Simulated assay, not measured.
Amino acid sequence: MNTIEIVRTMADFGFDAKDEAGHVIKMDTSDDSGGKNYGARPMQTLLMGLGGCSGIDVVSIMKKQRQELTHFKMIIKGQREADKIPALWEKIHIIFELGGNNLDESKAKQAITLSIDKYCSVAETLRRAGAAITWELRM
């Protein structure tokens, strides 16, 4: 079982989340909810987790395809449910920006599809919570 430790370290709502290896993510609430801009909001860290999970998948798959990436960037945009508490992620769109020497676009699309639809546990978790995840590739 994985263990995460959460400690309040800043004002009312500033928290440090630490994993078993000692990696820390700082979290806070929004300014209008009393936050102090200490860290990312918890719901945004879900989108960050999606990016990390899918990014690892895509790079790994493309390495196996013998595709040499020299540029990798993801832009993730999310829309939450309106007028609901809790407000879950409803729509998530990911833009993959990939560059490299002689990249095969069909292989890049295959890698992204495999990640989003099959391998990325964060994507599946968000999908099961009702989020629609779409993506596009820019090369």
Rank of each mutant, 00 (worst) to 15 (best):
T29Y: 08
S33C: 15
D28H: 05
G34T: 11
Y38P: 06
V24N: 09
H23K: 07
G34S: 10
E20P: 01
I25Q: 02
G22A: 07
M43N: 10
P42V: 12
D28E: 11
Q44L: 13
C53S: 03
M27W: 08
F15E: 01
K26L: 05
Q44I: 09
M48D: 09
T45E: 14
A17E: 03
S30Y: 15
Q44V: 09
G34Q: 11
K26M: 11
M43F: 13
K18D: 00
F13E: 01
L50K: 02
A17D: 05
N37S: 14
A17N: 01
M43P: 11
M43T: 05
E20D: 02
R41G: 08
D32N: 14
D31V: 14
T29K: 05
I25S: 06
M43L: 13
G14Y: 01
D31G: 15
K26N: 11
D28S: 02
N37E: 07
K18S: 03
L50G: 11
D19R: 03
A17C: 10
Q44N: 15
G22C: 10
M43G: 13
D32T: 13
T45S: 12
F13V: 04
I25R: 03
H23C: 05
G35T: 12
G49V: 04
G52Q: 05
M27K: 05
H23G: 07
M27Q: 02
F13R: 00
D16G: 00
G22Q: 15
V24H: 14
A21M: 08
A21S: 10
Y38R: 10
G51L: 12
K26Y: 02
K18M: 03
D16S: 04
G51I: 02
G22L: 05
R41D: 12
F15K: 12
A40R: 11
G35R: 10
T29N: 10
C53A: 03
N37K: 14
G52R: 04
T29Q: 14
I25W: 11
M27G: 00
I25T: 06
F13S: 00
F15M: 04
D16N: 01
F13L: 00
G35V: 11
A17I: 01
L47I: 13
D16W: 02
A40S: 12
D32H: 14
G14N: 01
N37G: 12
K18C: 00
K18T: 02
G22I: 11
Y38S: 13
T29H: 08
P42T: 13
G14A: 01
G39F: 14
I25Y: 01
K26W: 02
